[in-house]
């Protein structure tokens, strides 16, 4: 009886030990994934982070002067550029910006039953140059420049640690509240244009990029140093451009982050204090009862 028990216990131990020690599954299919993406320092990162208004303004400038040539931002409205927690431009300058925005709004029908184009107003979305996907593909050699409103949320950084470090890294991310994978990826993408390795043949109309999955994408390197002048003294390097526009696109995808994190602290404080008080109350209630 006891030998049988011991044998059973040792089988169980052996089974779990085998599970722990044998070859690491993480070595499989590492080819399918992109390279490790560097984590940047973001003012809005972590649980205390808030957007840096000056950075959002610079980021919008990059979007306007560079990205908007091909990409729309149609879930963001001109009015959002005025609101607190965002770039916070003065209302008058955004009104003027909307009126001059080259991609006008299709409105109508008018009294004659015709649709017409009119300049944008504060209440209108920030449109890209193409009316629809077909028009975009026709103009872009078959490629489709996606709308950028949600791009920072729709991209992430996939890490592939070995299976036994995985839970610890996960807990680390939860504790540090890491949510900036999209911004990290976008920065890596925009600074990731290099000459292809000798053994890689880049297809016609494609460009080599270290961060892009598969390494070949149809967008040429969008940023070059000193292409956009900054008025606040920030160095006009590709790296700064990339980080500023990534920060701006993070705001575009998550415009309520500032309010969310501020309120989060108030809620956490309330919960901590209440939990402690309730615990003290519970101890008092149970003080005469051994349990």
């Amino acid at each position: 009886m006891t030998t049988m028990k011991r044998r059973l216990t040792s089988t169980l131990v052996a089974a779990s030990a085998a599970a722990l020690l044998a070859s690491s599954p993480a070595t499989a299919s590492s080819e399918a994934h992109g390279p490790e993406i560097t984590r940047q320092q973001w003012s809005f990162g972590g649980f205390r982070g808030q957007y840096d208004q000056a950075q959002l303004q610079r980021g919008f400038q990059i979007y306007k002067e560079v990205c908007s040539a091909c990409h729309g931002l149609s879930r963001v409205y001109f009015r959002n550029l005025v609101q607190p927690g965002g770039p916070g431009f003065p209302e008058e300058s955004v009104k003027a910006l909307a009126a001059e925005w080259p991609n006008q709004i299709t409105d109508g029908p008018n009294d004659e039953g015709q649709m017409f184009e009119r300049p944008a107003r504060l209440a209108d979305p920030i449109r890209g140059p193409y009316k629809n996907e077909k028009e975009a593909r026709a103009a872009q050699n078959g490629a489709y420049p996606p709308d950028l409103s949600l791009i920072a949320k729709a991209r992430g950084v996939e890490r592939n640690p070995s299976w036994w470090t995985h839970p610890f890294l996960m807990l680390g991310d939860i504790f540090a509240s890491y949510q900036e994978g999209g911004a990290d990826y976008l920065t890596a993408l925009m600074t990731g244009y290099v000459d292809p390795p000798a053994d890689v043949k880049v297809n016609d109309g494609m460009y080599y990029n270290t961060a892009f999955p598969g390494h070949q994408l149809a967008m040429p390197s969008p940023l070059s140093a000193d292409a956009v002048p900054y008025s606040d003294g920030t160095k006009t390097t590709v790296e700064n451009y990339a980080k500023d526009v990534s920060a701006f696109l993070s705001w575009a995808a998550d415009p309520t982050l500032d309010q969310r994190k501020r309120m989060g602290w108030q809620v956490m404080l309330y919960l901590f204090v209440t939990t402690v008080l309730l615990y003290l109350g519970k101890r008092r209630v149970w003080s005469k009862i051994k349990h």
Binding site: Y178, Q179, R260, M263, G264, V267, M268
Partner: peptide, 14 residues
């Protein structure tokens, strides 16, 4: 609720 709120406010998309 502390855990719940941590995710709601600081890690909503995790």
């Amino acid at each position: 609720l502390i855990l719940f709120a941590w995710f709601v406010f600081f890690l909503p998309d995790y």
